[in-house]
Amino acid sequence: MQSSTHPSPLLSIQNFTTEFRSSGGKIVANKNVSLSIDHRRILGIVGESGSGKSVLCRSILRLIPSPPAYVTEGEITFNGRNLLALSESEMQAIRGVEIGMIFQDPMTSLNPVWRIGDQITETLRVHKGMGRREAREVGIDLLRQVGIPSPDTRFDEYPHRLSGGMRQRVVIAMAMACKPKLLLADEPTTALDVTIQDQILALMLQLQEEVGMSIILVSHDMGVVAETSDTIAVMYAGQVVETAPTEAIFNRPKHPYTLGLLQSIPRIEFKVDRLVPMKGQPPNLLKLPKGCPFAERCAFASPDCIETPVALREVEPGHFSACLYPERLA
């Protein structure tokens, strides 16, 4: 979004809107989402449960089943191609090859009845047409790269023999097997302990440098995105409410939700007498107002906020906010 060195971004999402339809009503999981990520960059998407960040991430690979989900608007352009217009078989050639993905729960994202090696080399054999022996060598090398001790014996073991952290390394190795240009990481460290999360984040950053890929890192943890991302997008109730370079998001937030998040996190560096919580409850996605979805919880809102539809605007060069009155935060 901020870079002009490359003629076009690696991935660009324009006005992307997804609805989930059920007998209970219609939920707009993503509403007019526009984002882009350049080559060799890390985009952090933060938001709480129900903010639509996972739906967005999975929509890039078209992994959301329809029904119940329907894309009603928008384009997702990856390397000049609109992913939403591709056929299923063209999409399969992109999944795992050009775009890799890692999921939140390493316990369920590996198939328990397959050997680790077979799971890693499957993509190599399917997509790159490698023979068994060659794939094995590459696979063991991948396990070594992701920091698994004694990779040649681990290669022939089943996932249940590995700890959560080790499994997540295997999942990363699988996603990296074909050296994708983009890695989608959906809460990759949420299920892990702090010290293991630390290791996995370090590994992802190291691989990103080595391979020169881009990463979209979805997280609910402001700390995780702060330490890793070049750009951050904050999502709330299906919309991107703010996006900017990391430094600007943290130092000069232009959306009250971002500000609220930053203020409500207890800090380890110092103790405060009282946290500053955000008021109210998470939004009811079935009953969103016409205007700003955050208005009813917002300390700065005026009555027109609930009525006036909001969209991202550039409030500073490279800094976009969906707030009608970003100046009130100052």
Partner: peptide, 22 residues
Amino acid sequence: LRALPRPEPKRRDRKIALEGDI
């Protein structure tokens, strides 16, 4: 204490806090 990511806009440049598995 070192492993906890802090909400400061600073790209991590530190080493891994603790190696190995529990």
